[in-house]
Design a binder for these strands. Structure first.
Lengths: 215, 215
DNA sequence: CCAATCGCTGTACCAGCGGTGCAGTTTTTG
DNA sequence: CAAAAACTGCACCGCTGGTACAGCGATTGG
């Protein structure tokens, strides 16, 4: 890596940490260059404006995210031949990864961008959109594969992939707002249980210990 | 309503529309006062700073939200004595309201604030937190009531309330990002199906028409 | 070895933003 | 009719993203 690329990466690292901690709008260029030990001219040599910074950050973030997810879901496949079991394993791994990642930086750039749409240009928004579509497609095909074996009950399989995206994005918001990192993990695990319920071969799979109360 | 309160409300209306459309950071005071037909001094006569504007906006928003939700969930109770049926009815109504409200204002202020935390002071964040806690408490007690009659299967009842919040917040993000308003409604309806599954008195309740495929 | 490119620095400047201070004026109301 | 409320007008501040451009040392391909 040449010296230029090195500085560029350093800028992106600093910016990403700041954006995830306090949002894009609250992250000033002056702040970034101070921490990076460069001048304003130096910054604009690498990025023509703040939009380009956002775009490159998002690209990196999505790539890294895809890498982690690929690992999690191929690991699930490794550990079980059954697609349902594989998914349930992967969801457990996902919950753990999200729990641990939270101490590092508890935010989702995509959602952050979504809520400040007008600050960004089309390219940035499209990138966020594409990233979300890719990751939903992954789940949709996984669910379709499972549904071919275990007839789903109750829920619409096509919407389950979106539900997972919602649970993660919503979980991040909840965990942040409530200052309770465990909430995100619990939500993913709860989703996992629901998936198990939807595709359970028979109702007996999770028969509860009959509650001795009303009705 | 005196003239002062009238102007104040007008400012809040304009600000809210702008914030929901393009985010808090992208909403400038100059813009608001231009549309309201007042001067900058006039604005600061009503609100000492942008934080106070955010706070009052949020207060109004949460109150209005609570009002709508109260109506939806009391309507559910009216239409059925059974708490599970009441909730399922309410969730259908909720899905419809969210679908229709989206053309009006397609955002959730609370999440918007969460993602720009550092722009706001403690008071604003606490207000958002309190609002979310109140609305989750509502669902938690509703679910507890149902669980006392219908033993839940699979999912943890304590987390289901959070899941609904996640589905709504996440659904808003997804609908915005994908420019597909229907997604939010589908997600709430899907959640409704999952609730039905968790609390269904017996497995037969939603037996699917057996798929003639693999396995 | 030298010239060109790379990777910056330094300086000067711009408009828009949130915000302050304060004196003065109109409008409302008890 | 006077006091209080609801503003206006203007000057000014620091920070922000962003532009323009001249220059300078290190690296590198011909």
């Amino acid at each position: 890596m040449g010296k230029g690329a090195e500085t560029r990466e350093r800028i992106l690292d600093i910016a990403q940490a700041s954006v995830l901690a306090k949002g894009f709008g609250a992250t000033s260029i002056d702040e970034i260059i101070a921490e990076a030990g460069i001048t304003k001219s130096g910054f604009f040599y690498h990025f023509k404006d703040k939009n380009e910074l956002a775009r490159e950050m998002l690209r990196r973030f999505i790539d890294e995210n895809d890498r982690v997810f690929d690992e999690i879901f191929s690991r699930g496949r490794e550990l079980s031949d059954d697609p349902l079991q594989a998914l349930l394993i992967s969801l457990k791994l996902l919950a753990e990864v999200l729990r641990d990642a939270q101490t590092q930086h508890p935010g989702c750039l995509v959602a952050s961008i979504c809520y400040q749409e007008r600050l960004f240009d089309r390219e940035v928004v499209d990138l966020a959109k594409q990233g979300t579509m890719n990751w939903n497609a992954r789940f949709r095909s996984h669910f379709a594969e499972i549904a071919a074996i275990y007839p789903p009950r109750g829920a619409r399989v096509e919407d389950l992939a979106d539900t997972l995206a919602c649970v993660i994005d919503g979980g991040i918001i909840l965990a942040r707002l409530m200052n309770d990192p465990g909430r995100l993990e619990r939500q993913v695990l709860n989703f996992r249980s629901l998936v198990g319920l939807v595709f359970s071969p028979d109702a007996a799979a999770s028969k509860p210990l009959r509650v001795a109360s009303a009705a």
